[in-house]
Design a protein around this nucleic acid. Structure first.
Length: 639
DNA sequence: ATAAACCTGCAT
DNA sequence: ATGCAGGTTTAT
């Protein structure tokens, strides 16, 4: 079996056997495939086939049967074979790259397999991981102990043929691995990420809606050069101070207030709607309702826009939006000009009613007809729930308007109330106009935000809807929070999907165990450092048979002693992780040009464990076929 | 593209 | 005192 495969020079003229670059006089060019060879590295019997100045290389001469596969251009199958060998012999290529080049060659690509450096640059993330059997992204990936990844199906086919060596590196595949391959779940995530990575990253950065970065905005209302002429009238909003996303429901608590660490308290007031917006109580600059149809409404403003509104402080009747001509200013008379429907913002309010979400309420001094309105400016009055909604004909015309009954449900007392305590659940007021109402809607399900008798306070009884937006307040202060608890950040994905279960950091040099768990190589080495493969036992004076030490996987009961003799880094997985880290760093650099420079240098994979609260128990995906003891008390997980 | 419970200076 | 103009953001 010790036949030496003869190899030619590569595309740079370097002999692939001795790695020297032979001068022209020491090289021979094959008359058939025009490949140069290093004379000193050609076996004498191969040199003999030289006939009258015409020399054929070992691949083209003699007993090699011409391949039936036609290759683009003039060369025949021998060239193909030589090219394949050249690819195989190229130590600068990864296995994936080799496979890719092979594939390209076979499918009649650009010919000579060696001079395709340009290919590497083009190689994008989704091609980093590939099953070297089918040369595609692995479907249900399994990882061999030698650190190579295959489709489960391809792997099974491979071992079914009796192969017990790795298709890529010829490393040994232990019998139990061959019989019992495991899906590598981290790699599944990696593949999903790789598939989505380009677009996903674009989406994340595109979500930063502000043209001017928040930290560049002035503390007071920001004005463009042109808008400065008219001052605040034409001002766009200033810096956003709170770290809530635009669709945050409920009170703004201190954790969202990095500048003051107190949150937005009931009774806080601002000069105008722009200032109010800067503190997140009510984001829209103009509109009365903040919300998204199909999601819910987060806040409303009472500004006296609709004559139908009726304010009783702890409860009020609100009118939906639409149907009025708002051109010009508020002094312009504008009456209802068409029917309102439960659509857009009005539908958003109806969803908040249905779900029992808390809706923040701000009152403006412009609400002249209310005893509860502030004298000046805009004031945050706490959260209310919408208990019912309906439609009726508006009092100022013959058009229908949407109507909402808001009832206060805040843990802080209202600004006008002399109570110290916040609201208690109260009976709903009697609404005379309800007998003229159509399309009455009353919440049937349990409200998401409700009074907890045991606790004596209002709180989320169901988890609040997850935000679909990102936060405007992207200042450095905030980014630290995002980095720690962000739901969509690349880093979050890294931490969640590629966490080493031993050190709880993003894996470096990941190795995949035969049970398909992934750890840092260092962590695994350290865990079993000093644990000998075998243990000497002695009783009395005599030594007993040595006993094999069981080295159990950190995550399951699989014995890793055999694997640990030579654990191999899963390079493809590593590349995905490294790539994500790089992207994360890039996005940091874009957001924050200089600040982070020092921080990122020291390998920024330290992500302390969270404060436990979240769904941290990423269920460990135990290999199903491993005998799991089904204790009666470890069955029900249902969530 | 446009509506939306804004805001202010300026022209009349 | 009143009307207008126009910049502004978010959702659709």
């Amino acid at each position: 079996m010790a036949i030496e495969i003869q190899v030619p020079c590569d595309g740079d003229g370097v002999c692939m056997r001795c790695k020297a670059t032979p001068p022209a006089e020491d090289s021979l060019t094959c008359s058939t495939c025009v490949t140069p060879w290093h004379v000193a590295c050609i076996l004498p019997e191969s040199l003999v086939s030289s006939t009258g100045g015409e020399w054929q290389c070992p691949d083209c001469s003699g007993d090699i049967v011409e391949s039936a596969v036609p290759v683009s251009g003039t060369a025949g199958g021998a060239v193909l074979l030589a090219a394949v060998r050249a690819i195989e012999a190229d130590v600068t290529l990864t296995d994936a790259q080799k496979a890719k080049k092979r594939q390209k060659l076979m499918s009649g690509g650009s010919g000579g397999g060696v001079d395709e450096e340009d290919d590497e640059k083009k190689e994008s993330d989704d091609e980093k991981i590939c099953c070297s059997i089918c040369i595609k992204l692995p479907e249900r990936p399994v990882t061999t102990p030698c650190g190579h990844n295959f489709c489960l199906k391809c792997f099974e086919k491979w071992v079914a043929k009796g192969n017990l060596t790795c298709m890529t590196c010829r490393g040994k595949i232990p019998k139990h691995v061959a019989q019992n391959p495991r899906i590598n779940l981290a790699l599944v995530s990696a593949i999903r990420l790789a598939k989505a990575s380009n677009s996903a990253v674009v989406i994340t950065s595109a979500k930063i809606q502000h043209v001017v970065r928040n930290e560049d905005r002035p503390d007071k209302a920001f004005t463009t050069e042109r808008a400065k002429k008219t001052g605040k009238a034409n001002a766009c909003s200033g810096k956003i101070y709170v770290t809530i996303p635009g669709d945050h429901f409920g009170p703004i608590t201190s954790e969202y207030d990095p500048t003051r660490n107190q949150g937005v308290l009931v009774g806080e007031s601002w000069d105008d709607r722009q200032d109010c917006r800067q503190w997140g109580a009510h984001f829209p600059h103009v509109a009365g309702i903040a919300g998204q149809s199909g999601f819910g409404a987060q806040s409303v403003a009472l500004s006296g826009g609709y004559l139908d509104d009726e304010d009783h402080g702890e409860w009020f009747l609100y009118t939906g939006s639409g149907g009025r001509d708002l051109t010009g200013n508020k002094r312009t008379a504008n009456i209802q000009s068409f029917d309102q429907k439960f659509a857009k913002m009005n539908e958003a309010l109806r969803i908040s009613c249905k779900m029992g979400y808390p809706v923040r309420v701000v009152r403006s001094h412009k609400e002249k007809r209310s005893a509860y309105a502030p004298e000046k400016g805009v004031r945050y009055d706490g959260v209310y729930r919408i208990e019912k909604c309906w439609r009726k004909v508006g009092i100022q015309g013959s058009f229908k308007v949407c109507r909402y009954l808001f009832v206060r449900c805040d843990n802080e007392a209202a600004p006008w109330a002399s109570d110290v305590l916040g609201d208690r659940p109260r009976p709903l007021p009697v609404i005379p106009e309800l007998n003229k109402a159509t399309e009455l809607f009353v919440r049937k399900e349990k409200p998401s935000w409700d009074f907890d008798e045991a606790d004596g306070r209002w709180k989320w009884m169901k988890s609040p809807p997850a935000s679909r937006k990102c936060v405007a307040a992207l200042d450095p202060e905030y980014r630290k929070i995002v980095r720690k608890r962000g739901k969509n950040s690349i880093m979050d994905k890294l931490r969640k999907e590629f966490n080493c279960q031993i050190c709880h950091k993003v894996m470096s040099l990941p190795v995949t165990t035969p049970c398909a768990h992934n750890f840092c190589k260092g962590c695994l080495d350290a865990k079993f450092a000093g644990v000998a493969q075998v243990r000497e036992r002695s009783r009395g004076g005599r030594t007993l048979r040595t006993k094999k030490n069981v080295m159990t996987c950190h995550c399951c009961t699989t014995d890793l002693s055999e694997f640990l003799q030579n654990p191999q880094v899963n390079r493809e997985l590593m590349e995905v992780i490294e790539n994500l880290k790089k992207k994360e760093e890039e996005s940091q650099a874009v957001d924050e040009p200089s600040n982070d420079a020092a921080e990122s240098s020291g390998g920024n994979t330290e992500y302390e464990e969270e404060e436990g609260e979240e769904e941290e128990e990423e269920e460990e995906a135990e290999p199903p076929s491993k005998k799991i003891k089904l204790d009666s008390n470890c069955v029900g997980v249902g969530n």
